[in-house]
Write a protein that binds this DNA or RNA. Structure first.
Lengths: 206, 206
DNA sequence: TCTCCTATACTCTCAATGAGAGTATGAGAA
DNA sequence: TTCTCATACTCTCATTGAGAGTATAGGAGA
């Protein structure tokens, strides 16, 4: 019962409750499927959050039951909506990227060329998988099945970013594979192509 | 003295040591400036890692001193290089993105249109800042001042990705601002433009 | 009808981590 | 001479992630 103040995760859960009441299990599913793409959190953490919201008076808990199995449904309160609105008005953090495959590529000169090729291939596969998940989310959105309002504008802003992000990873992986193919057997001897360096520098000029 | 097994952070530090010996302070600076863009870690964590590397026999610690102030310089061992090579051969995790500003935009219908505009403006500003840092890193790289080998090919793979990522955030923020400008005063009434939805769907078709 | 298997619906614990306060000296600028 | 910033760490605490563990519901197939 960590009764400390509300975190961004608390507000993420509160935001989901703003779209309609639900059990923690349903909330965890939403986070896994859609919200987790921009705010990934452990399931165990998500189970704690609604309790905090109730303690803050931002949600109410209703005990239901499916047969003999209990189930707690949470509903946002008026104060909860007000708190959510206040949070939306506060400045937010920019993107934080954690990319282990890219980390390995930085040190690729300490390994084999095949290692590097396998790593970019895995990144390409990741992007394809993420894109498939994205299409599923898009269909849910378009059909109104998802948690969002039917064809509401705000989720589309996130969808656009994620779509382009996955495409970026895929295109970058293809380009990186091409580059690595030109390397000598020992990546430690690989020298950067000045033309590529210039091309990248131009893409940073905006 | 957490003597548990080596994490990706351990290997990140080991990778930096592979480029040359250094004190933990220097390592933390490298992580803050360059590696942190794809593998952000707390400074306190970074101070623990070299000790773990020594315990594993992957690095040696040499006590030096600058005047009366002690300073520990770490050097990678042959076993360290072998361990690093083994790690590079293992599969790595795909990108993990944490983007609070995007999270707020998903729930933008619970706030004001100005909130949303301020949030995308902050994202745009973040991208500009990141791009400036990127140019600094690029100059270091080109001049051979950085930790990397002069004009080695591997770091360029990471540079290319990050450059395009920052540009993506900026371009997306500009587009998002345009979209939000067309919303009514209450974002809850904003309906997605079908043409935009189609455009995004096409960008997901690859 | 009975048996799986999967979905629902949680609780609990432990190790890892982040954040930041705290301490101290060196080096160079004002 | 003093100040400020860089160097070089240690320590602690609350948060978090990861995953094991428990139990019922519901539908598919034998």
């Amino acid at each position: 019962m960590s009764s400390t103040s509300a975190t961004s995760t608390s507000f993420a859960v509160l935001g989901l409750l703003a779209l309609g009441p639900g059990s923690t299990y349903e909330l965890t599913q939403q986070v896994q499927r859609s919200l987790g793409r921009m705010w990934p959190r452990a399931t165990s953490r998500l189970y704690e959050e609604p309790k905090k919201l109730v303690a803050l008076g931002w949600a109410t808990a209703t005990a239901e039951s499916v047969g003999r199995r209990p189930r707690t449904v949470y509903t946002i309160t008026a104060e909860g909506r007000a708190a959510l609105a206040r949070w939306l008005a506060e400045p937010a953090q920019g993107p934080v990227l954690e990319f282990e495959q890219l980390l390995k590529l930085v040190f690729a000169d300490q390994g084999s060329r095949d290692d590097a090729l396998r790593t970019v291939a895995a990144a390409r596969a990741w992007a394809e998988q993420a894109n498939v998940g994205n299409l599923v989310a898009a269909r849910e959105y378009a059909s109104g099945k998802g948690p969002q309002q039917h064809r509401a504008a705000p989720p589309l802003l996130a969808g656009a970013f994620l779509t382009d992000f996955y495409a970026l990873v895929a295109r970058w992986a293809d380009w990186a594979a091409e580059q690595i193919e030109t390397w000598p057997d020992d990546p430690a001897d690989a020298v950067a192509d000045p033309a590529e360096f210039e091309a990248i520098a131009r893409r940073a000029d905006w």
